[in-house]
Each structure stands twice: as C-alpha cells, then as structure tokens.
Computed example of a mutant assay.
Amino acid sequence: MTTRIFLVAGEVSGDIYGADLVATLRRLRPGVELVAVGGPRMAAAGARCLLDSSEWGMLGWVEVLPRLPGFLVRLAQVRRMIVRLAPATVVLIDFPGFNLALAERLRGTVPLAYFFPPMVSTRQGDRARRVARLGMRLLAAFPFEADAYRAAGADVTFVGHPAIDRVRPGVSLAETRLRLTLPAAAPLLALLPGSRRQELRRHLPVIARALPAVRARFPDARAVLLLAAPRYRPLVEMHLRAASIPVVLVPGGTPEGYDVLAASDFAVITSGTATLEALCLGVPGVVIYRSSPVDAWIIRRIAAVQWVGLPSILAGREVMPELLQGALTPPRLAAVITEGLGDAALRSRQRQELLALRERLGGPGAAERAAREILRLARLLGSEASSTIQTT
C-alpha cells in the first residue's frame, strides 16, 4: 500500500521551500505519494496540489477580520481533505496563521511535522508553550528558534535553513551584467518590494518616488526588480511606469533572480525571507517595511527584539539599516540608497558581516535533514542517524 504524506504551505516563500522539500522527499522515497495544498513550485517539484494557496496570505490583524469567513471555509475544507485521505503524516510549512489553526483541529488525529514553525524568540508571550502543547515535531530553521522551543518543552529539531543550498549565483557577476547590457561602471540597484500584493501596494510608491534623487546622484544607475510571482507584473509595471531609472523585471526565487541579486551593488529589501537571500549572497542593502498603523502598534507591544531584518536578528545587532513605518519615506530611502551606492567601504563592511552569518543557518542540506525527520515520523525511515544540528 502506498504511503501518503500531506503538505500544507501558503504564500510564495512557503511554495519555494515546500518545493525543495517535495523534491527531496521524492528523491529519498520515490514511492511515497505527496499530496499538497501549495503553489505552482510545489506542483512542479512533484506534489499533487489539490488547492493553490499561493495567494491565501493575510497581513496583520486588521486584514484578518473582514476575511475571516473565507479563512474558516478554507480551514474546514483542508481539514476534510486530510481526514478523507488519511495520510501517514501531515507536514505544515510556514504560513502560521493558517497552519496553527489547522494543527489545533488535527491535534491527536495524525502525526504532525512543522517545517519553519512560527518564530517565537522575537516576540513576547507564551507562544512557544502554546505551540509545544500541540504535540508536533518542529523542524526549526534558526538555532535561536530551536533553543526557544526546546526551553518550552517542544519536540524540536534544528535542521537549518534551505536558503544555504538554494540561494547562490549560477554564473559570474560579469556575465550577469553583460546579460543585462549594463555599462561597465553603472551602479546596479536591486529592488525586492515584497511577495504579497499588499506589500507591493505599500512599498512601490515610496520606491518609485525615491528613484529620481538616486538618478540625480548616479545618472547611469540601473535597477532590477525581483518579481515574486508573474501575477504581480501588471501592478509592478503600473507603479514603475514613470520610474526615472530603467528597471528590469526578473522572476524572484529563481536562478536568474539570484544571479541578478548577486550582481547588484545595493538592494532595497522588504523584511522577510528576502533578507536571508541577501545574506547568503553578501549583498548590502536596506530593510524596509510598512504595515497598517494598528498592526504596527500591536507589533511594537509584542516584539522582543529591536530589528525586523533576519540578518540583524541573527547577529544580535544592526547589520542592515532599517526604514520602517513612518521612517520609510522617499527622501530617507533615497538618502540610504545613495549612501550605499556611493560608499564602497560601507558596502564591503556590510557584505563581510552578512557572509559571516551564513554559518548560523546550519550549513548545506537543510531540506534533506527536514525530509529525513518527516520520513521517520511517517515510519518510512529508521532512527539510526539524527538530523539535528547542535545549537550549543
């Protein structure tokens, strides 16, 4: 009888790292049936996707309330699918708002693994204990998250972050610049405005209004924008139609996207997974984020750290400057970009600090370590070798 594993991911980043996990599970156990709620990347990697969840994401507390009925309908629909298909294991991937609610409804009925469990060390409260009580096997991407969950009594394994394997240039920087037809000395600015529609709407107008000041200081500057999904192209083109700097759109989360990011001199990066991509490639930049005022007020009261960018959280100090909420204005953004493009010593220092943090992501093989833990949970792999990485 074929063993079935059910995976649940949401949004672009979950689809990317879910695809890595699907490909690794298929390589390790080709006969396992992989069924998923996910996106096009997971489907391309070999999962049978029953629902496309790549646009299910919601930002903050304010946006959740009007969309709550649809959220509950989807939650019930996915739970029914899992009950009907009776998988050996359910694998939750990131997407904490949805997946924690799903875990509560599945608790005690099926073995659960959580790849990229909700971050707890960066916020106040007892979230770690509440997650631990759900009885899941947690596959943590960061050492400080594994430590925090372990202290709360959770069944947690530090597997590391798959960005180490995924995010790397495939060609030389010179070849990438040649492909982009860049003049030899032209500064290249990378734009990563977000992977959600709401983020694009909040960030792109600020970026577009900052570019004229950058062009005035660097007349030959060029920009590349890493597009999180093809469906966002019309929205991005609308905001950048009158951009004073030529902007080339490149698909994000792809080898081509990593090539152009690696070749960039400086980057404007929305807080989230994209900051880790810059870390892996050693690309200096500024972290930006703007949410609703109510969400910002709530976040300030529950935050346990003073940064939002993952490189700074990993380092325990500011590695990349941050422009958040009201501080994210066109003049301030333009000032940070022009300083970054104009100061080679600053870029070199930040680049070295970023690359030095790579070792804290657990080293190569994160997706395989996670896959092996999942296969053990599904009783498809023995316990002869541990997949965990020591955090102390």
Rank of each mutant, 00 (worst) to 15 (best):
D343C: 14
Q350L: 12
P321C: 11
L261F: 08
I298Y: 06
V286P: 05
I298L: 15
V319W: 13
Q352T: 10
Q306P: 04
V236Y: 14
G362N: 00
V305P: 01
A315C: 08
V294F: 14
L261H: 08
R332N: 09
A315T: 06
L276A: 03
S291V: 15
V268N: 02
G340K: 09
L235E: 15
F266C: 11
R347D: 05
T254R: 12
A366T: 03
V250Y: 08
P331C: 01
L279C: 10
A229H: 15
G282H: 10
E322L: 03
V283H: 00
Q352R: 15
I298E: 00
P255T: 05
Y289A: 05
V294N: 03
L346S: 07
E277C: 12
T273D: 08
A315K: 02
L354M: 01
I269D: 01
A334T: 13
E256C: 09
S348W: 13
I299Q: 11
I269N: 01
C280R: 05
P246K: 08
I299A: 14
F266Q: 05
P364A: 07
Y289K: 02
R360W: 00
R332V: 04
I299V: 15
E359N: 01
T338H: 06
E359W: 00
I299R: 09
T329E: 02
A296Q: 14
D259R: 06
L226W: 12
P364T: 01
R231C: 07
Y258R: 13
V305F: 07
C280K: 04
P293A: 13
A315F: 04
Q352P: 00
A345K: 12
L346H: 02
S292P: 03
P293N: 06
